[in-house]
Design a protein around this nucleic acid. Sequence first.
DNA 1: TTGAAAGCGCTAACAT
DNA 2: ATGTTAGCGCTTTCAA
Lengths: 339, 339
Amino acid sequence: MITITDVANLAGVSKATVSRVLNNSGYVNEDTRKRVEQIVKENHYVPSASAIKLSKQESTAIGVVVPEIDNLFYGDVLHGITEIADQHDLSLVFFDTQNKAEKEVRALHTLSQQRVRGLILAPAVDYSLSSLGRELRKQLKALDIPVVIVDRDSENMHWDGVFYESYQSSYRAAQILHKAGHTRLGIITGDLALKIGRDRLQGFRQGVLDNGLELRDEDIFEGDFLEERAYELSKKMFLSGDWPTAVYTCNNRTSLGFLKAARECKIRIGKDIAVIGNDRIAMIDQLGIPFSCVYRDNIEMGRMALKMLLERIENPTRPRNICMIPYQVHLCGTEKLNP
Amino acid sequence: MITITDVANLAGVSKATVSRVLNNSGYVNEDTRKRVEQIVKENHYVPSASAIKLSKQESTAIGVVVPEIDNLFYGDVLHGITEIADQHDLSLVFFDTQNKAEKEVRALHTLSQQRVRGLILAPAVDYSLSSLGRELRKQLKALDIPVVIVDRDSENMHWDGVFYESYQSSYRAAQILHKAGHTRLGIITGDLALKIGRDRLQGFRQGVLDNGLELRDEDIFEGDFLEERAYELSKKMFLSGDWPTAVYTCNNRTSLGFLKAARECKIRIGKDIAVIGNDRIAMIDQLGIPFSCVYRDNIEMGRMALKMLLERIENPTRPRNICMIPYQVHLCGTEKLNP
DNA sequence: TTGAAAGCGCTAACAT
DNA sequence: ATGTTAGCGCTTTCAA
């Protein structure tokens, strides 16, 4: 691998001069510049990022940690992040924690070795509930770099963040169902060990109440944001023979589990039961399933996150900054919400 | 940021000793070790990856370049890669080229600066067709690091690769349709500027022929692997009033476009027309759409890719290694393939 | 306009 | 068992 010294020797100048050419800094004679550039090109010389980082004491990499990249939501977010990273010539060091706190610990540790400029993190666990969560919070604090939390908030966080209006959107979902004439509503919740899960339940519950309805205990199914459990719960619900006329599913995987169970039980969506979800489902429109939802722009979330991180890097002392991505509503024909 | 020198001073030993403790190398007195470890812990000291890389002249990072991370397929692949990376304590430097060759150029350049240990690459363009493709091939060769190509092959590639049995699976798709009693088959192709696109068309065509059928020119719709175009083509097909009894869609996005058009034209899948796709679609099972397909295990593809890369790094001179991920068949009731 | 030299944080050979 | 030293590839004063 060719180094700056090699280039300097080949060009018959000093390393310092080559460095000046490379960085467009300081004075350098036009002829010398040409010569050096020539050598660089001919030999495919590319400076080492490590050496630069070590010497300049600053990095050009950003850490990105997500809980499950094989969820389209995070794919979208990563897309958004990539767009902005590209504009600013930043490289991304990527981690997938697979929803495991221990993996998040390792990821943070590795990132700390890498001396990344900043970090975008979608936590695997709630930072205020489990002891491991609290450990993680400490570790993150110790990292002492700019951080933006995305998607999953916890209580008492002091980092910047980009979140979804979970409470509001869920509230809205209840309202929509009420407007469509439903009186008995149900919910398959997300993981209540995550703030985002609790918010959605609470928002929905409040929405139900504020519309003069009641949310019965037996119509609250406690899920975990995963398809498998949502499927089981839905199946149980259908088999019980007694269910709400409309349910609210708290995320895309939950919606999938619900739809699968409905299909297996020969329950017709939009006829026998109505459903409104949180998050769109990729192909729902193509298939004409009467699936309404409140959702967000995931790619935009990614863009926002990195922009916010860059602002924080720019100005480390500014007050905490939170961005709530507004929800949008996708109604698949109001009539369809009436069983 | 605390450095090894600080730790050494605090512990009252030399940098070398600290280094020995850190790396478990050479002799070091038990007491000294304890003391150093204590200081390290207390001060949250984490060695700089850059400095280590520079000094050891070896990197622990792998580059990953995909064309569109907001396609679940690549999300899955990345998941697989992550699994293995984790086992080997490798970190990933990630790039999304958004299917643009120019972005791929930049990605390769950045990776070259990073001195990554190896590279897993799903190319945005065919490396043997366009001039930019040929440029990229040169650039990749100049990188001179272990490379594994995933998903998209080109002619005359000499790097290791993990691919899908595109030809075979498409051949099989034709066979399945024939067995189900169809006599007039159609195809919405992928991007024929990509080898993978051509392979699928050719495999299907051969399958059609070998089963004693004919693939009419007007039943070949030239798509580009994207939903939009597939939608337009399908719509055109349906509006023409004259179409095959069964079509083969070459990837997941194409399937989506097709299904959307079918729905809009009130065409009943499995009744008015049968469809067999390449790639599964995430929620197709949940919804009970009679959508058969040939598909692959994407996560396994990711795992394989990184394993292969590690083997190549281990043994740089071994002959070129290609792994073809076998296809699997998902039949959604044979009867459903009969319109 | 250019070069010499020190230094970034760490490792590894060589002394002791 | 531990310290000294040189060097990894680059940047950046400071001189010339």
